[in-house]
Design a protein around this nucleic acid. Structure first.
Length: 445
RNA sequence: GCGGGUGUAGCUCAGUUGGUCAGAGCGCCAGAUUGUGGCUCUGGAAGUCGUCGGUUCAACUCCGAUCACUCGCCCCA
């Protein structure tokens, strides 16, 4: 992937087609589950953005042209904050549970590097309810994400699942005193990074939270549970730990979600309990999950999400409570990687199915009319309008990946005859062009 | 925000201690092949060597500045 402006990727035609195919597949799956499209402005008020992110994440701070106005806008850095704002301003006219998806670019003011951009697409799905939302939706979202990724024909992937209450239920008991809440959050983030750190680094970091050595031993065995077997076995080991009521609730929710997934027909191999998974975002309160490729480790996660018990409180002070569960797929990171590795088909530099070649330019109108007949049959058709030899015209089709060319000289044209050549098999078929129907559509498939 | 690297044709890059060093491969265009692409062969177009300044008889080569891109860290998708 090359970008002329650092962090703002651009694709060549064949890559863009591959990217859009991925995006369309995701969109189709989201809609198959009844999620409605949603779009919001690229900018939000700075106050809204700062309610969640920090300054460095907001790429480009724009002040409105009116110098007297104190209002300033910034580019969104995710799709959740705009969604929260949207809900808090339109909830009176929305129907709950509300299911929406949004596939759109976001911008971040971070330094770019491989697999990390300043502009990238997020594919978000969320289900949001007023006051409460069945935990079945957690499983539904996981099912949707799993099926979507599965149907993308990408390499093997696994989704790690956990429940925030499992972690907080434990940590609340071992981290107490001043600033306990912040420390718990920090501690969770450290636990989340356990795979990236060395054993020494990790436990050295843990010491800073003032956890007793007895509790650290507990934590250690707890974190190692995930390495010991199947989800069922892990749950069996977690239950008797009985760290606190909240912990038990988390384990029970985790069990419910996994049980539902089984009932919903999602195979066990796609989902794996990970007791160390927390995810960075602070608003998650229950189920959390994160998906990565099994064999491609250097790009991090390709998607993730979770449950949040209070979406809009960070935006508005209203007493209304909106509970949601959502997920996001990071296609801007995933697609270029798959292209680099040759794991995504990007042989075609065109969406055309047929090229109508032009041999006698005096009949250009007839060729165009003929093209129109194919278009009305739903066949994506190009007419070759440059003054080049037939060989060059076919070469053009071949290089772009157009599978069929139509060849006809003026005599054939007047006789309502044409040759359809399949460039992959070299097969040629003579067709009649006055009344074309299903047989032509089948031929060009 | 902090710390490295690189900048020569559309792309990937080579250019020896400053002195025919402005090159190769791929791609592109044309022809061999007057209705039919990929292969092969032949020929062709294409670069103010990132930019500005300095050192020198001489700079793609050395020095400085600047811009751009890039890789790590932080953070994230």
């Amino acid at each position: 992937m090359k970008s002329d402006i650092s962090g703002f990727p651009e694709f060549l035609p064949n890559e863009q087609i591959a990217f859009n195919n991925v995006m369309n597949t995701i969109k189709e799956h989201f809609e198959l589950y009844g999620f409605v499209p949603m779009d919001t402005p690229a900018v939000e008020r700075i106050e809204t953005l700062l309610a969640k992110g920090n300054d460095s994440e907001i790429y480009g701070l724009y002040r409105l042209a009116d110098e007297n106005s104190k209002k300033s806008l910034g580019l969104r850095f995710d799709l959740t904050v705009p969604f929260a704002r949207y809900v808090s301003s339109h909830h009176g006219r929305m129907i709950f549970p509300h299911k929406r998806y949004q596939i759109a670019p976001v911008w971040r003011g971070e330094r770019p590097q491989y697999g990390r951009y300043r502009q990238f697409y997020q594919c978000d799905v969320d289900i949001i309810g007023e006051d409460e939302l069945s935990i079945s939706h957690d499983a539904e979202i996981l099912k949707l994400i799993t099926e979507t990724l599965r149907d993308l024909n990408i390499p093997e992937f696994t989704t790690k699942v956990n429940n925030r209450k499992v972690l907080t239920g434990f940590l609340k008991h071992v981290i107490v005193g001043e600033h306990a809440e912040e420390k718990i959050l920090e501690c969770m983030h450290l636990i989340d990074k356990i795979d990236k750190l060395s054993v020494d680094e990790f436990w050295k970091g843990m010491e800073e939270f003032g956890i007793s050595s007895k509790d650290l031993t507990k934590l250690k065995s707890f974190l190692e549970v995930e390495k010991r077997g199947s989800n069922e076995e892990i749950l069996k080991m977690l239950k008797p730990l009985n760290f606190s009521a909240e912990f038990n609730e988390g384990v029970s929710e985790l069990e419910t979600v996994l049980d539902l997934l089984k009932k919903f027909g999602i195979e066990d191999r796609y989902v794996k309990i990970s007791t160390s998974l927390a995810r960075g975002l602070s608003y998650y309160t229950g189920t959390v999950f994160e998906t990565s490729f099994d064999d491609i480790k250097d790009i991090g996660s390709i998607g993730g999400g979770g449950r949040y018990d209070d979406l809009t409180s960070m935006i508005s002070g209203s007493d209304k409570k909106f509970v949601g569960v959502g997920a996001s797929i990071g296609i801007s990171r995933m697609v270029p990687k798959l292209i680099d590795k040759g794991l995504l088909n990007c042989a075609k530099s065109t969406t055309s199915q047929l090229l109508v070649t032009v041999q006698n330019r005096n009949f250009i109108g007839s060729y165009m009319k003929l093209s129109g007949k194919f278009r009305r049959l739903g066949i994506k058709t190009e007419t070759y309008l440059q003054d080049k030899s037939l060989g060059a015209q076919i070469g053009y089709a071949s290089r772009k990946g157009i599978k069929y060319v139509l060849i006809a000289n003026d005599i054939e044209l007047l006789d309502n005859k044409a040759i359809i050549r399949n460039l992959e098999t070299k097969e040629q078929t003579v067709i009649r062009t006055e009344y074309m129907g299903k047989e032509v559509v089948d031929l060009l498939r």
